[in-house]
Amino acid sequence: MPDNAVAESFMGLFKNETIAAGSPSPTGPLRTIADVEAITMNYVDWYNNHRLHSLLDHTSPEEFEQASYAQHTGSPPGDAATSKTA
Rank of each mutant, 00 (worst) to 15 (best):
M11Y: 05
V6M: 10
A38D: 15
E17G: 12
H58D: 15
R31S: 15
M11Q: 08
G12F: 02
A81M: 04
N42T: 13
L56E: 10
I39K: 01
S25H: 14
E65M: 10
K84M: 03
N4C: 06
T27K: 10
V44T: 11
H72A: 09
Y43E: 10
M1N: 01
N48Y: 00
T82W: 03
E63A: 08
D79S: 06
N16G: 13
P26I: 07
L30T: 13
D3P: 11
G22M: 01
L55E: 15
F14Y: 10
A86G: 10
V36H: 08
S68E: 14
E65G: 14
T59E: 07
M1Q: 03
G74C: 07
T27H: 11
A7M: 00
H72T: 13
I19V: 15
D45G: 12
D57N: 11
M1V: 04
T40S: 10
T27V: 09
S23E: 01
A21I: 14
T40A: 15
F14Q: 01
I39L: 03
N16H: 07
A7S: 06
A34W: 00
I19D: 09
D79C: 05
G78M: 05
G28N: 06
A34T: 12
A5L: 02
G28W: 06
H50L: 11
R51S: 08
P2E: 01
P24K: 10
A34R: 04
G78Y: 06
T85F: 02
V44W: 05
T32H: 06
P61M: 05
L56R: 10
G78R: 03
Y69K: 13
A21L: 14
A81L: 07
V36I: 15
D57H: 10
S54C: 13
A20N: 07
A86Y: 00
E37Q: 13
G12M: 05
N49I: 05
M11K: 02
H58S: 15
S54M: 02
S83Q: 00
G22N: 06
T32R: 09
E65V: 13
T59R: 04
E37M: 14
G74E: 05
G12H: 08
A7Y: 00
S75C: 13
I19T: 14
E65A: 11
N42Y: 10
S60R: 03
Q66A: 04
T59L: 03
K84T: 07
N4H: 01
K84W: 00
P76H: 05
S83M: 00
L56D: 08
E62Y: 12
V36Q: 12
S68I: 07
P24G: 12
Y43Q: 11
E63P: 11
S83T: 00
L13M: 06
I39D: 09
G78D: 01
F14C: 12
H58R: 04
E63D: 07
A86D: 03
H50Q: 08
H53V: 14
D45C: 11
P29K: 12
E63H: 05
A7W: 01
L30E: 08
H58M: 13
M11N: 12
T59K: 02
D45P: 05
S9G: 13
V36E: 13
G28D: 08
A38W: 01
A7Q: 00
M11V: 07
S9Q: 08
R51F: 03
A67T: 04
M41S: 13
Y43T: 14
S54R: 00
P24A: 06
D3N: 13
L13D: 11
A7H: 04
A80N: 05
Y69W: 01
H53M: 08
S60I: 01
N16V: 09
T32D: 14
G28T: 07
